[in-house]
């Protein structure tokens, strides 16, 4: 029991951190760079992707034995596209302002390689609970990345976070941060940071292992 719990936790946490779709796998860059000029847009895009990924994973896992392997990709895409369309109309009806900001990038969730990748690599091979955990983990990781990137860009670009002014009226906005180059620069620096942390950890581990080996 404890072991299966451990495994479940693992499936969840790997998407959030160890195999984070953005910072480690570098997947889904198009929405990542295009819509994250504010935290709220990041949240909206992250939640839309969350919904599509979790629903698609559920159905793909549920129907995996019905779907012949020759047409599996087409079936995955149909399932994904259905949920994307649902999200598209729902956002347009409920929050037209957010929909206007995200624009063409909502329909483009269909082409987000993260989603199709999870169906092919995980959901179509695992049980429904495991597929859900994986999807929730990956989607959370994606959401986390979008929000942090959007947050940084909004703080520097407009002096606000989620629309609340942080620095008062005299703040000098960093215009570049709202523009596409700001997205590239910020994401590049974040990747740099993650790789640096990873490398440092590896080095420390190696040192530790060497020290232990010496002690033996």
């Amino acid at each position: 029991m404890a072991k299966s719990q451990q495994q479940a936790y693992d499936e969840f946490i790997k998407g959030v951190w160890r195999e984070n779709p953005v910072f480690v796998q570098v997947l889904g860059m198009c929405p990542m760079l295009a819509v994250t000029n504010s935290a709220i847009n990041g949240i909206a895009m992250g939640l839309a992707t969350f919904f599509v990924l979790v629903c698609s994973s559920f159905f793909v896992s549920l129907l995996k034995s019905f779907i012949p392997k020759q047409v599996r990709i087409s079936c995955f895409i149909i399932i994904i596209a259905t949920f994307v369309t649902v999200v598209d109309y729902t956002l347009l009806a409920l929050v037209p302002k957010v929909h206007k900001e995200l624009g063409a990038f909502i329909p483009l969730i269909v082409a987000n390689c993260l989603i199709l990748g999870r169906q092919e690599a995980f959901a179509s091979k695992n049980t429904i609970p495991m597929a859900m955990l994986d999807a929730v983990g990956m989607a959370s990781g994606f959401l986390l990345a979008l929000v942090s990137l959007g947050g940084i860009r909004e703080i520097l670009g407009e002096g606000k976070l989620l629309g609340f002014s942080l620095f008062g009226p005299n703040f000098e906005p960093w215009v570049i941060m709202i523009l596409p180059p700001g997205g590239f620069i910020t994401l590049g620096l974040m990747l740099l940071f993650f790789n640096w942390v990873e490398e440092r950890k590896k080095k420390l581990d190696a040192q530790l292992a060497a020290a232990e080996g010496g002690a033996d």
Binding site: E172, W174, V175, I176, M177, L179, P181
Partner: peptide
């Protein structure tokens, strides 16, 4: 170039 894109007015 970075400064010009970031603080165009200043």
């Amino acid at each position: 170039a970075f400064l010009l894109a970031t603080f165009p007015i200043a």
